[in-house]
């Protein structure tokens, strides 16, 4: 659309325009690039990616609370169906509290909280946040109903249905958040997308188990202890595998103190729960608290490791260069 003065001194219509100027075409004879002069590989060491604008309290908190809520609802349903009312009651209340908290965190982090409902304009499978919103939409009222009926004793049938419904939706709530953070360009998140849901599932289970131990009498907390142990095991396995598979982008994960602390707390909590939780309420409560803290630390750790990986251009650039080299080599082999 830009105009050119076409009529020129020599009247040739096919004259080159300035778009075809080639600066540096005259001058000395050509020299080839000096070898080994590759640049640092970044622009003044600045990140390639823009930093995720999320606050850790809100979003890491959301990851934790969402997991706690989801797994708690499932635990509640299981407890209710297997006749552990105290555990069920505790888990339902916890689920409601956690989902409430997570919703608050989520909305709080929106730049325009008043526009939360815009999430309901569309349903986008390509957007874990959209999917998550619909999961929350399905899950939230059931969890609320479950807790409300539990606490008030009204509408027991409805309560049971809601409990089961929330219990079935709970795991989705607990794991979609992994897809949420992995579906970004943030290296330490994205590259872990295979293990992250398991890590989150494990961590959610551990936290729900922990809460169960904390809130339910020892007698009914058996499932909580087992869930905590299994969850912790899953979390550990996923973490180990993730670090091994990811390559250099796992560095920020490996370096994360929070992750180390989270793991230690979870393992301590799970083992303590197994060893003493059956006997001592105090021990059970301590184990539960450790598990909750461990899960929270893990989520905050993942969050911060991701931010750190995005802030360092190496984690964006180098794996991509390696990928290019590999595909080039493959192409050359062919």
């Amino acid at each position: 659309m830009s105009s050119q003065t076409d009529v020129r001194l020599d009247d040739a219509p096919d004259l080159r325009t300035e778009r075809e100027a080639t600066p540096g075409s005259a001058g000395r004879g050509s020299r080839s690039l000096r070898p080994g002069e590759r640049d640092a590989g970044s622009y003044y060491g600045l990140p390639v990616l823009n930093r995720t604008p999320w606050s850790d309290h809100d979003i890491a908190g959301y990851l934790f609370l969402g997991g706690l809520a989801g797994a708690s609802s499932t635990l509640a349903a299981a407890a209710e169906l297997t006749g552990r009312p105290a555990l069920a009651r505790a888990a339902k209340v916890a689920a409601l509290g956690a989902v409430g908290g997570s919703l608050y965190a989520l909305i709080h982090d929106l730049g325009k909280p008043s526009r939360f409902l815009n999430m309901l304009r569309v349903f986008k499978v390509t957007s874990p946040m959209s999917v998550g919103t619909w999961i929350l939409t399905a899950y939230g009222p059931q969890a609320a109903t479950a807790a409300a009926t539990e606490l008030t004793g009204l509408f027991p049938r409805l309560g049971r249905a809601a409990t089961v419904g929330a219990g079935l939706a709970g795991p989705a709530l607990a794991t979609y958040t992994a897809a949420l953070i992995c579906d970004t360009a943030v290296p330490a998140w994205h590259d872990g997308f295979r293990e992250m849901p398991f890590l989150f599932a494990g961590s959610a289970a551990a936290s729900a188990g922990g809460l169960g131990m904390l809130a339910a009498p020892v007698a009914q907390a058996g499932p909580a202890r087992r869930v905590a142990l299994a969850g912790t095991a899953l979390e550990c396995a996923a973490t180990v595998r993730m670090r091994r598979r990811m390559g250099m982008t796992a560095e920020p994960l490996r370096r994360s103190r929070l992750l180390k602390a989270g793991m230690a707390l979870s393992v301590t909590g799970a083992l303590l729960g197994q060893a003493l939780g059956r006997r001592s309420r105090v021990a059970a409560m301590a184990a539960g608290a450790a598990l909750l803290a461990g899960s929270a630390c893990t989520r905050f750790g993942i969050f911060h490791a991701g931010i750190a990986s995005g802030d360092d251009p190496r984690y964006t650039v180098e794996p991509q260069l390696a990928r290019l080299a590999t595909s080039r080599a493959e192409r050359d082999l062919r």
Partner: peptide, 14 residues
């Protein structure tokens, strides 16, 4: 300066 680039496109040395 666009006119320098025009000249350049047409072979001028700058």
């Amino acid at each position: 300066f666009q006119w320098v680039m025009e000249a350049k496109a047409r072979g001028a040395v700058v």
